[in-house]
Design a binder for these strands. Structure first.
Lengths: 328, 328
DNA sequence: CTGTTAGCGCATTCAA
DNA sequence: TTGAATGCGCTAACAG
């Protein structure tokens, strides 16, 4: 492993017997160059194992052809799925997508935004950690570069937004459940997340609107552990049957797992629904859930990022996926 | 949203009435500065909303205080868990961890390595896509910066490696299964992944050594969909009972889901074991699995990255987690 | 303790 | 078409 000083354009120019300007033109292909010279330059570049220094390039140009994505937590399968689709959406383009995990911390999120801004990214995609307290990070980003909020948003910012209509998603769940059976016989409990993020907030509002303001709501976080605990609380209250509307698939999966381990039947005793549409194939019974069109959302982000348009908000329509945790 | 030209150190220096060198010293805190001047500088920086340009800084210095992580696929929960723990391990340090998803493509993986190298990262962490065909990417990385392979490795490269002992992990599974019951009555099938990655390769070798070379092996990929299909094939062969040793938790979860949907009992008819130790709380019965010490592995990576030591390989010891998919 | 100077690597003027 | 010169923003030597 030889770690000698990396070759620069000046080295290549010297070996090829040309100027650095010519090397730059050959390697970037921006301008016509004499074929014979071009040949000499590329040969010299290969021989010296030349690799461009993007710091120098980025410093000289305005653009770095880079987009940063700051997300709250990679372990949340919905976020990692979003990240994966976004990466794929950018795979064919010239721009590199770089990711940074905020580890569910506001301070780390802000650090990630600062880091990307310092690296002169062309655009920033943010899944804000908190509906209100991420305002500083979002505002900072939006004041410097094209910024798009994904899935979650901070109200009052000028940044664009791409997400799903949570109200429509919950309505799909409600219509499905009411069509299939009598909700009075299987009373509804909402297993949600504390309204720290806009998605948790909107889903909570939507279930209150859709199922009645006096709906039983248990609020925790987006995790399977919370799903298990919430289901345990439902059973502890004495319920022997019911309908558990969950704010996320991970919550629903945890809830189902606990119900089954407690000897309850799903969907006979308890019906359960999820939200997001990720990882439905992992469990049995498979989850009835609201699928978000993540691929289309990722492409919308990509288009928004390269466009020159003003900030805009776009809500995608979710679809219902009927699984084995609710009556067919 | 004012997008005027960002302030530079020269702007701050002008407003504060000092030289750029003083601004640099104040803002980076590298040298003692007259308190009164420092005050003027910070005030000017705040007033101009100054933010450092890391491209200029990185170009001037040798180091960028950045580590890149290139991983094959974010949707694989083991990789995203690894990424999350790595992010957390770096959260307290001065260096930023940036992620890049190769989308399971060799070309994209190489692009990610090139991109990070061009950005002058101080170190690179790689989870190679392919045991042989990622050799170019790993070699390129290792020839330029401190490089650590994680979880998967490419034999013959000089880069360091951090992973788990797959042989020990499979041995834990075998000992557990043989201690609990008669394997002849519940014949073993291995639901594995094609040996494209070192982890898939090593686990396949380990089960052949541990359970006999004539063991039935079904090889696909690391996905729940494959787990479902493989379980379907086992049932199609006429088996009514058996032991399914899986190469990953996602495979095991898919297999269990299919078995249950086909009316088989787990663990009475079929026992199932996983590998990795991620997402065991998502399913019922909970998975019996081999847990990888991801937190310790992430810290080892961090220490390896900042150290000046030569390349080294480190295998961590896995532990068995007994769940509900195998006899207690 | 502070300012001046120089240069990291690159792409683009401007002249030839 | 090509080369020489310039400057992107920053920090480190050096001299004061």
């Amino acid at each position: 492993v030889s770690r000698s000083r990396p070759a620069t354009m000046a080295d290549v120019a010297r070996l090829a017997g040309v100027s650095t300007a010519t090397v730059s033109r050959v390697l970037s292909g921006t301008r016509a160059v004499d074929p014979e010279m071009a040949e000499r330059v590329t040969a010299a570049a290969v021989r010296l194992d030349y690799r461009i220094n993007l710091l120098g390039r980025g410093l000289r140009l305005t653009s770095t052809s880079t987009v940063g994505l700051v997300l709250p937590d990679l372990r949340n399968p919905f976020f990692s799925t979003l990240g994966q689709h976004l990466a794929r959406a950018f795979a064919d383009s010239e721009v590199d997508l770089l990711l940074f995990s905020a580890d569910d911390s506001l301070a780390t999120e802000l650090r990630g935004v600062r880091s990307f801004l310092g690296r002169q990214v062309d655009a920033l995609v943010l899944i804000p950690v908190h509906e209100e307290r991420s305002a500083e990070a979002v505002a900072l980003a939006a004041s410097s570069v094209r910024t798009v909020q994904l899935d979650r948003r901070v109200p009052g910012t000028t940044a664009s937004y791409v997400g799903v209509s949570n109200r429509d998603g919950i309505a799909l769940v409600r219509d499905h459940l009411t069509a299939a059976a009598d909700l009075d016989a299987q009373p509804v409990t909402y297993l949600g997340a504390a309204p720290d993020s806009s998605s948790a907030h909107e889903r909570l509002d939507a279930v209150r609107r859709g199922f009645g303001a006096d709906l039983d709501c248990l609020l925790g976080d987006f995790s399977a552990a919370w799903g298990r605990e919430a289901a345990a609380r439902v059973l502890a209250s004495g319920a022997t049957r019911g309908t558990l509307v969950c704010a996320a698939d991970v919550i629903a999966a945890g809830a189902v797992a606990h119900l089954l381990s407690a000897g309850r039947r799903v969907p006979e005793d308890f019906r359960v629904t999820g939200f997001d549409g990720v990882g439905a194939e992992l469990t049995h019974p498979s989850l009835t859930t609201v699928r978000q069109p993540v691929e289309a959302m990722a492409e919308a982000i990509r288009d928004l990022v390269v466009s020159e348009e003003d900030a805009s908000a776009r809500w995608f329509g979710p679809t219902l996926v009927v699984g084995g945790t609710s009556p067919a």
